[in-house]
């Protein structure tokens, strides 16, 4: 009996250790978004006059409220992705939530002093539907004489690097008897395994070589120094100091400084580790913010204060000069 209890305790403590020691990497949020072409060609659009220039933007809300074919495809894709362990963020629901949040934020006041919530213009601007991977969807029911067929086009886009991480496209077989709804369902069923295989390759690459992200270094206008200023005992230019830090901290030193001036540095294809060990010895998931936060601390040690601005899981800006 005692031996059994000891074994049980040992098993539980090992399990607890495993949970603490091996965390999980940050899971990307995936969302299906109808393509601009789909929305605009069907009249789901908003037109603006931007300083004399006509600008056309897709109206997702109208598209999702009025297009039953789109809803059918989104639901089917959502069902398949949830089955694969990736429940999709629903664009329609997200738009409703944001509207509700906007209304509540403007009305909410503190009960003791009647104070409003602090909100900067940038906070308000950030209240938009976001995802880490966008499933850019486009389809069309085409006719050839009495026959109907579906042309289907689905792209998996990384929201930060703008790279296509997966994609499927093709035309289904023509049919005279099947309804367009049935053909659409067939198109989704037919293409999703291939799409997910592309996504799987992207994730495997991510776990092998690190998450690919984008980092920008900028400078506040009132700082008085810039990226060409010299720091440290050996009088090294700040841009070189930052570049060296990336070389030391990226997975296998992989990054690409794609553009730079004395006021900004644009790092692309930056491979950051998926996990790292924190001060308490725990494995923690890394996102761009936490990765760039280490650079912020490093520069702070050299007397360079900075503000870290997050643009999602895969992009962050570090603005030098002050908080």
């Amino acid at each position: 009996m005692m031996v059994n209890m000891k074994r049980l305790l040992l098993t539980f403590s090992l399990l607890a250790f495993a949970i603490l020691a091996f965390g999980q990497a940050k899971k990307p949020i995936i969302m299906v978004v109808p393509s601009d072409q789909y929305c605009i060609s069907r009249g789901y659009k908003m037109e603006f006059n931007n300083q004399g220039l006509k600008q056309v933007l897709p109206d997702y809300k109208t598209a999702l409220q009025t297009d039953p074919d789109l809803r059918l495809v989104v639901t089917k894709m959502g069902q398949i992705m949830a089955d694969r362990g990736f429940p999709l963020k629903d664009l329609e629901q997200e738009l409703k939530n944001l509207e509700q949040e906007r209304a509540e934020s403007s009305m909410l006041t503190s009960s003791s002093s009647g104070s409003e919530m602090a909100e900067s213009p940038i906070d308000a601007l950030k209240r938009v539907a976001k995802a880490d991977i966008i499933m850019d969807l486009d389809f069309e029911v085409k006719r050839q004489g009495p026959q109907k067929y579906i042309v289907f086009n689905l792209k998996g886009l990384d929201a930060y690097t703008a790279k296509q991480v997966s994609g499927v496209a093709g035309a289904g077989s023509p049919s005279t008897s099947a309804s367009p709804e049935l053909l659409l369902e067939e198109a989704v069923l037919s293409h999703m395994d291939n799409f997910n295989a592309g996504l799987m390759r992207h994730f495997e690459d991510m776990f092998a070589k690190g998450r690919e992200v984008k980092v920008q270094i900028k400078v506040w206008a009132n700082w008085g120094e810039n990226l060409e200023s010299e720091f440290g005992s050996d009088g090294k230019e700040l841009s070189s100091i930052i570049e060296d830090w990336f070389a030391d901290n990226c997975v296998e030193g992989r990054f690409n400084l794609s553009d730079a001036t004395e006021n900004f540095m644009k790092f692309e294809q930056v491979r950051i580790p998926m996990m790292r060990t924190d001060d308490k010895g725990r494995q923690r998931a890394v996102d761009t913010r936490s990765f760039v936060s280490d650079l912020r601390k490093y520069l702070n040690g050299m007397g360079i204060p900075s503000k870290l601005y997050m643009r999602g899981l895969g992009e962050a800006w570090l603005i030098l000069g002050e908080k």
């Binding site: 990497a25 990307p28 362990g85 990736f86």
Partner: peptide
């Protein structure tokens, strides 16, 4: 086989 969400 590897799950699509393994590691996350």
């Amino acid at each position: 086989a590897r799950r699509l969400d393994s590691g996350f």
